[in-house]
Nucleic acid binder design. Structure first.
Lengths: 110, 110
DNA sequence: ATTGTTTATCGTAATATTGCAATATTAAAC
DNA sequence: GTTTAATATTGCAATATTACGATAAACAAT
């Protein structure tokens, strides 16, 4: 089939899965880290930073944008991409909650 | 092509991407949350908890296991699955670092 | 040994993802 | 208005993922 059965899961589960999926490719992790490294986010040279062709990079950027992880404002000729702090915080909080609950459990087995 | 060009990225980037990818499906998020909810991890009824057929669940479990997110010990007839705290901590720490750096930047644009 | 229970694997169909060449779009610069 | 530069879109091939029926494997219980 190949199509995820999203309708059977909660909105929250789908949301986290979508964000995780968007980061489930090293190129997109590299993009995230590059956006983080660059001082200002007026950056038109993401393509040069990655070992991939321009259309491929563009596609990865689109996926990050669709997931809401980055925002892209048109700035004349170039595009100003930057990370959406709010959305990344969701991921951070999610994993913090998980690990906190894990610590409380103090692994009764395994 | 369909094959990720992992060789062009750092080990760390590939590692995080692999973990994120493993959680990039609502069923696998649901499995993680179920393992977290259940008191002891001697659990043989993950299949009943999910709206998916048994082979599909088995496949998702395998992927979580491959990524290292869960461990599975054979316990007679059933299998004792549980979350690998260490691996989940990697994700937590990664996103904490990202958000900390983001806060320091205090978004100069967008 | 046969039965029932649980989990894994195989095979396969439907769909999604990855990657890039070619081309289009957009807007600044001349 | 033509050129230049940056990014997006289209089209396509290769591969991966998702899902499940059928079947196998492993073991407990009778």
């Amino acid at each position: 089939m190949g199509a995820t059965k999203t309708e059977h899961f909660t909105d929250k589960q789908n949301e986290i899965a979508t964000l995780a999926k968007a980061l489930g490719h090293p190129a997109r992790i590299a993009i995230l880290e590059y956006l983080l490294k660059v001082d200002t986010c007026i950056c038109g040279d993401i393509v040069n930073e990655l070992p991939l062709a321009q259309p491929t990079v563009s596609q990865h950027l689109k996926e990050l944008k669709n997931a809401g992880l980055i925002k892209g404002d048109i700035e004349g000729n170039t595009i100003c991409y930057c990370i959406d702090e709010k959305v990344l915080n969701k991921l951070k909080t999610y994993f913090e909650n998980i690990t906190t609950k894990l610590e409380k459990k103090k692994s009764q087995c395994c």
